[in-house]
Amino acid sequence: MNPDLFPQLNRVIHEKGRLAIMSALAAAPELTFTELRDLLDMTDGNLTTHIRTLQQEGFVSVAKSYQHNRPLTSCALTAAGRKAFAQYIDLLDQIVRQSKPK
């Protein structure tokens, strides 16, 4: 097995909660804060912290708007986030493939 692959995994995405957020957003053009919270069963504070980290890395964009006079926060993956997520998946895939008996 190539031992260099594991350290190449993006540390920001690698955290369990953030990986879950990235996975959910990778499959949908955008999700509201509430949808993400319900889907991932996270607390408001936990989700906010992880989203902020991903936002600072430029992986997630956050849009704030109003729907029926109530604030609506929507999250989406940025192009950089999509690329980083694809690279992360690719590395995981390589780790799995390398360990398979030939």
Partner: peptide, 9 residues
């Protein structure tokens, strides 16, 4: 896990 989350979202 990633696959499951992507499907559910």
């Amino acid at each position: 896990t990633i696959r499951t989350l992507m499907e559910r979202s």
